[in-house]
């Protein structure tokens, strides 16, 4: 069932993203033919570049909006009658939307990167480019040693956990907003801000400690890089994510009240 939900979720959202990606790449290609000279922008170059940036930003804004809209519209407005009568546990609804949102964000980043490369390719020699990448790697390796891989893994995991936590924070805020009869949106925004602040406070307490000698101090003694500290941060973020998930699930199971 989760697979089926994923299938439909992707179908429903790809109608927005695939055209956007296409347009972005097209504009990137167009821009790559513009032969930019930073000292001398013609008007048309300016326009095409601006449009490209507009679409690039728009793509990420769209990810954000679609994420909210899918959860709110598909689950908590009239479509909720369709979705919640399916013989599927509520948590699968949350997970299918979560996975799909993460997928689109990651894809958006990759496509953005690709588009930048396309634009940059006009002025850069590809082999030079990869050569400089190698140099960066070697420098980094000489600093980190073998723990470079650890670092990279940590960045990727950290990125994903932060994303998941952020998305679930949005979901739980929308779910909390649903509890109100008349002020759903207001309550959602309030919940979002409130939970975010509480999260930050808890994190601060854990990391800085009430005497200044919290985790941060104790762990920055490590070199070359405070891996453990970052893992702690990722861990705390993950715990928050789990809490948001559980609360969202409870609300959907016990406090659902469709119009």
């Amino acid at each position: 069932m989760l697979g089926k939900l994923l299938k439909y979720e992707i179908k429903a959202t790809s109608r927005v993203f695939l055209p956007l990606y296409l347009v972005l790449i097209v504009f990137a290609v167009v821009n790559s033919f513009m032969n930019f000279n930073p000292d001398d922008f013609s008007t048309s170059q300016f326009i095409t570049l601006t449009l490209y940036i507009f679409i690039l930003v728009g793509m990420f804004v769209a990810s954000f909006i679609v994420m909210i809209q899918r959860f709110y519209t598909n689950l908590l407005s009239e479509e909720g009658y369709l979705m919640f009568t399916l013989p599927v546990e509520s948590w699968k609804h949350i997970v299918s939307k979560l996975i799909t949102s993460v997928m689109w964000i990651v894809l958006s980043c990759l496509i953005a990167l690709l588009s930048i490369l396309i634009i940059a390719s006009q002025g850069i020699n590809l082999s030079e480019f990869f050569e400089s990448l190698r140099m960066i790697w070697d420098t980094a390796y000489s600093y980190f040693g073998a723990s470079l891989y650890h670092f990279i893994v940590q960045i990727i995991v950290g990125f994903i956990v932060a994303m998941v936590s952020g998305i679930l924070l949005i979901y739980v805020s929308i779910a909390i907003g649903h509890l109100s009869n008349n002020h759903k949106k207001l309550l959602s925004i309030g919940a979002f801000i409130g939970i975010y602040i509480v999260g930050q406070i808890i994190s601060a307490i854990l990391f800085i400690g009430n005497d200044g000698y919290g985790l941060t101090y104790r762990i920055t003694q490590q070199s070359p890089f405070p891996f453990a500290l970052v893992w702690e941060a990722i861990g705390i973020s993950a715990i928050f994510a789990v809490i948001y998930f559980i609360i969202t699930n409870i609300i959907l199971n016990r406090r659902l009240n469709l119009e």
Binding site: N74, E78, E79, Y81, T85, P87, V88, E259
Partner: peptide, 14 residues
């Protein structure tokens, strides 16, 4: 839910 078929009063189709 597997054995119940429900027709709500509203239109709920996407």
């Amino acid at each position: 839910k597997k054995v119940v078929s429900y027709l709500p009063e509203k239109t709920y189709l996407n």
